[in-house]
Simulated assay, not measured.
Amino acid sequence: MTVAAVVYHARTPWPAATALSGLYLGPAALVDTMGPHLPRFAFTLDDLAATSDDALRARPMAALPILVLWTLKHTRHEPDIIAALRGVVDLVCAAMRDRHGAEVMAAVFNYIREVGSALDLPRFGGHDGRD
């Protein structure tokens, strides 16, 4: 069994349908006629833009996946992601205690380094890891 899921992390809420049938282009009569022959499925949408940080933290999951979702939500849009990370230091500490925490945190910080819009690399120790 396969369940389709989309984690959306743009600045604005998801702008489209969550069912494939809502995305078909063409005259309504044609779509209706072809309907029985067109794939019809919906996907689960996790719209991080429409999810408050409090709601994200309240999810029944471990700190590590919550921190990953928080990182996806904020990294591309925060003017100072380093300052924003101070607000989730409890999640960082808890994530580091996870069995695979060190490896995942390395990936999280690599994502921040690669994607962050205004990242001050010297605050990560003066080495950007690109050479």
Rank of each mutant, 00 (worst) to 15 (best):
G22S: 06
A102L: 14
P65Q: 13
L121I: 12
A107N: 15
T33L: 14
M1G: 09
A28C: 12
A29H: 07
A28M: 11
P27Q: 15
A29L: 12
T51S: 10
M34P: 00
A83P: 00
G129L: 11
D80G: 07
P60S: 13
L23E: 03
L119C: 11
R59L: 09
I81W: 02
V104R: 07
D120F: 01
A55W: 07
T75V: 15
H74G: 00
I81L: 08
G87K: 04
T12D: 14
L45A: 08
G22A: 07
F43I: 05
D128V: 11
L64M: 10
L30V: 12
P60K: 11
P60F: 01
A42D: 14
D32A: 13
I81S: 01
A63D: 01
G101T: 10
F41D: 04
M105D: 06
A58N: 09
P13F: 01
D98N: 14
R113Y: 12
P39R: 00
P27V: 10
A5E: 11
P60N: 13
I81T: 03
S52K: 08
G26H: 11
A55E: 13
R113I: 13
A49W: 04
G116A: 08
G26Q: 07
T51P: 02
D98W: 05
M96L: 14
A28L: 13
R11M: 12
T12M: 13
G125P: 08
D32G: 00
T2Y: 13
T44W: 01
M105Q: 12
